[in-house]
Nucleic acid binder design. Structure first.
Length: 401
DNA sequence: AGGTATTCACATGAAACTATTCTCTGAGTTAGG
DNA sequence: TAACTCAGAGAATAGTTTCATGTGAATACCTGT
């Protein structure tokens, strides 16, 4: 592209009418005015949390449901409203919202408590203090406040998986020692059986109330999507039946609303890039492809080097044959290691890595018996040749071959 | 022909080892009294 | 003297290796016809 051409393209880009009016409405962090199809849950939640407005401690609450069912959104919505009302009426209610999945911020006991204390305005060093000390600071911070403190722990299952349930036990017990204030705990989890693996004491106190968020069905997804699209697109940008199709796609995959919105957004982006005036159903298909491709690409690129090397080995053998066996992969893998200076792992480990790649859905690995010639895994890569080449190239640069 | 035994090439498990990350302790430092 | 920092000890954890055992069916080897 020459200088002139580029200039006119960029100028055109500014002048061009975008399909989007407000792209944010299709992003997962967006907070809509009203929450569609969660009336029952909203009401229930409001009922449970309302006592905080009278400075009475609400029951601890455990919320669970599959991803993309509006758990976080609904909770944020309610708590935000409660805080608003509370401040209007001068009722002391505090909110601490913590997503436990954020690495380096909230995935160990120390970090959680430290982060909570920081949210209350205390300065805590990242390391150096005994955990107990941090608890003490946190406790003092709380005790200096009065009224109700609502603590929301999002993706609480991740936390317990990494750091155990001791924190939860301590947090539920802390109320006994507080004089002026009370803590109300809300745990949000994607994992439906999470509660069962919990210490019974924690379990009973955390789940004084439970709310299950069921997946949306296709019709509900349509409504949600329609609502958001109204905000985010100009009129008449969507082809007839597009919303229905998009909802149907997502409903097929466990009714995940986040997916549904993403699908629509990506489809529209594709349409826009193609300079089309409407988003068409064909764009949806492309979007589904693209999302899946991106997902695979992302997982591959965030894999550890060893796994990448194994994957590369699998893919290099793929050229002529449909499938490879573990032994073949291992010998190629060792060559690759020699070339890149990577320390080769044992075949035992390689076998596990192949299993992991299979779990991720990047490759297919099936155990078969070749009779007299042993037992092994039959490995294939279910990808279009083009994409495979692209991934191979990226892996080569990533591993500096 | 039909049945049994063998054998291959890994799979799968468990325990031991290692490197890394966290947490905690005590020494040293700083600042205020 | 109390509070704060920070390096290093010790504990927890994740990633691997080592050792041991298991596995499904194509083939080799019988056995009796």
């Amino acid at each position: 592209m020459g200088q002139k051409e580029l200039e006119s393209f960029l100028k055109g880009f500014i002048e061009k009418e975008s399909l989007f009016k407000n792209k944010k409405a299709l992003q997962s962090a967006f907070m809509p005015e009203t929450i569609v199809h969660r009336e029952k849950e909203v009401k229930l939640l409001a009922n449970i949390l309302a006592p905080s407005l009278k400075t009475e401690k609400p029951s601890n609450l455990f919320i669970y449901g599959k991803p993309g069912t509006g758990k976080t959104l609904t909770t944020k919505y309610i708590t935000k409203n409660i805080i608003n009302i509370a401040s209007q009426n001068n009722v002391p209610v505090n909110l601490l919202f913590l997503n436990c999945k954020l690495k380096k911020i909230a995935d160990t006991e120390y970090r959680i408590v430290a982060q909570l204390a920081r949210d209350l305005g205390k300065a805590i060093p990242t390391t150096g203090l005994p955990t107990e000390e941090v608890y003490k600071i946190f406790f003092e911070a709380i005790d200096s406040k009065s009224g109700i403190i609502i603590i929301v722990l999002d993706e609480i299952d991740q936390l317990v998986k990494k750091a155990g349930d001791e924190i939860l036990y301590n947090l539920t017990r802390i109320n006994e020692d507080l004089k002026k204030s009370q803590i109300c705990l809300i745990g949000i989890s994607n994992d439906l059986v999470f509660l069962d693996n919990l210490d019974p004491r924690v379990k009973s106190s955390l789940s004084e109330e439970e709310i299950l968020f069921a997946p949306y069905n296709a019709l509900q997804l349509q409504d949600i999507l329609r609502e958001r699209c109204k905000v985010s697109f100009r009129e008449d940008t969507l082809e007839e039946g597009l919303i229905e199709k998009c909802a149907a796609f997502a409903a097929r995959e466990h009714g995940d609303a986040r997916r549904c919105l993403e699908l629509m957004r990506v489809a529209a982006e594709i349409a826009e890039r193609k300079n089309e005036k409407n988003v068409k159903i064909s764009h949806l298909d492309e979007a589904e492809d693209k999302i899946e491709r991106d997902r695979i690409f992302d997982t591959i690129m965030s894999l550890p080097k060893q796994s990448q090397a194994v994957l590369y080995a699998v893919m290099s053998f793929q050229n002529n044959d449909e499938y490879v066996f573990t032994g073949d992969v291992y010998s190629i893998y060792k060559n690759i290691c020699a070339k890149t200076g990577l320390k080769p792992l044992t075949q035992r480990r390689l076998s596990d890595i192949i299993g992991e790649l299979d779990m991720f859905g990047i490759i297919n690995a099936k155990v078969i018996s070749k009779g007299r010639y042993g037992r092994t895994k039959k490995i294939s890569v279910p990808m279009a040749e083009q994409i495979k080449e692209k991934i191979k190239k990226s892996l080569e640069t990533a591993m500096e071959i």
